[in-house]
Amino acid sequence: MTLAPGKALRFVWGEELAELAKRDPRIVVLDGDLGSSTGAYIFEEAHPDRFFQMGIAEQNLLGAAAGMATVGFVPFVSTFACFSVARALDSIRVLIAQPKLNVKITGGYAGLLASMTGKTHLMWDDVAIMRSMAYMTVVAPADDNEARQAIRAIVDYHGPVYLRLTRSDSPTLFGPDYRFVLGDSVVVREGSDLTVFSTGVHTTRVYEAAELLAADGIDVHLVHVPTIKPLDEEGIVTAARRTGFVVTSEEHTIIGGLGGAVAETLSDRYPVPVKRIGLADTFGESGSDAALLDKYGISSEKTASAIKARFLDWKKNA
């Protein structure tokens, strides 16, 4: 089953911030000269006096955002994940995380799909880096509906947040009744054979994979984890207990991301077999979205095969 098309999260981000800023004068956007890509141009158009072009200089982009937060603003930073997380990491660590300042760090174009840019721009260790940083909250919404609510929630939350966003158009997963709660995981599909945890836009692919597996007689219990830190440990344990076998699937290196977070929690609280699938311990390359998803093994079809292989292997040895 294929999900209905939805809006790319970058545009949702620009639109939602522009909307929220009408009512909340604290919201400002600082751009690292990527506003035409990240969706920040929508905010600039609506609120030119609260849009700050900081040029192609990301260390200062994040540093200046920290300073603005001390004056009472809620700064959102507009740049790609590779530049905020990798290039400006020291600014984030010393000026935002350590003083717990109210800066919302946007990691645009995160993951595998960054418009044929290649390995310099493909950032898929961002969650591992940001998750391991003290005081940081890490959020990766799945679709347009959830992204809008997540943005509202992180404005209401006082403290540093890393918001993982993606470039490409992605499907809509959640209906109008869905309610995002910061820190909660959500059961997307009830199932009885195995538990799969996923996060971000990739959950839409895992959902499609679960439907493919259902046709194959494998009943996936799918849990979406939009807040990777702080992790919904109770939700993780409850879902693992349900089936006794866990797979994590993510558009991120299998080192230290959602898979790492789930494995850490379950090894402490409810040890069951955990298999991590996602992007390998390597860097990326240029290519179309479809070609990249296929080659790097995280398309819906490839994800279904990978989950099935892990499940059958476990059943065989169980």
């Binding site: 920290a66 300073g67 603003f73 010393v94």
Partner: peptide
């Protein structure tokens, strides 16, 4: 403002002035 990793404090000071 916290500081110590050189250059960062100045960047934050700019943000304070901007704010």
């Amino acid at each position: 403002m916290s500081s110590g990793s050189l250059g960062l404090g100045f960047s934050a000071a700019l943000g304070i002035a901007l704010g």
